[in-house]
């Protein structure tokens, strides 16, 4: 595996850990994500997918947050 492989949160495997490098969202959604701990440098664990595949649940700053495909596709990070 590459040492700094950048992938989208949406494409990450369940159980993997990702350090956020960029958030390509603006406005309220970006600010909401920041408040929840999706800040650059934060490590996010991919927990599970909803029974219908979307949304996905992530563990960030000790809490579990679900995001839709539309958003999780626009957050990138490197595998750790």
């Amino acid at each position: 595996m590459d040492e700094a492989k950048v992938i989208k949160l949406y494409d990450a495997k369940i159980g993997s850990f990702i350090r956020i490098t960029s958030i390509d969202l603006e406005g309220v959604m970006r600010r909401r994500l920041l408040d929840l701990g999706f800040v650059r440098g934060a490590v996010v664990e991919v927990i599970r997918r909803s029974p219908l595949g979307d949304p996905m649940a992530f563990r960030v700053s000790q809490t579990t947050i679900a995001l839709r495909k539309e958003e999780s596709q626009r957050i990138e990070g490197e595998l750790v």
């Binding site: 929840l36 701990g37 700053s61 000790q62 809490t63």
Partner: peptide, 9 residues
């Protein structure tokens, strides 16, 4: 107490 990191924010 179980998720202080976000709560401290």
């Amino acid at each position: 107490a179980t998720s202080l990191e976000r709560n401290f924010n």
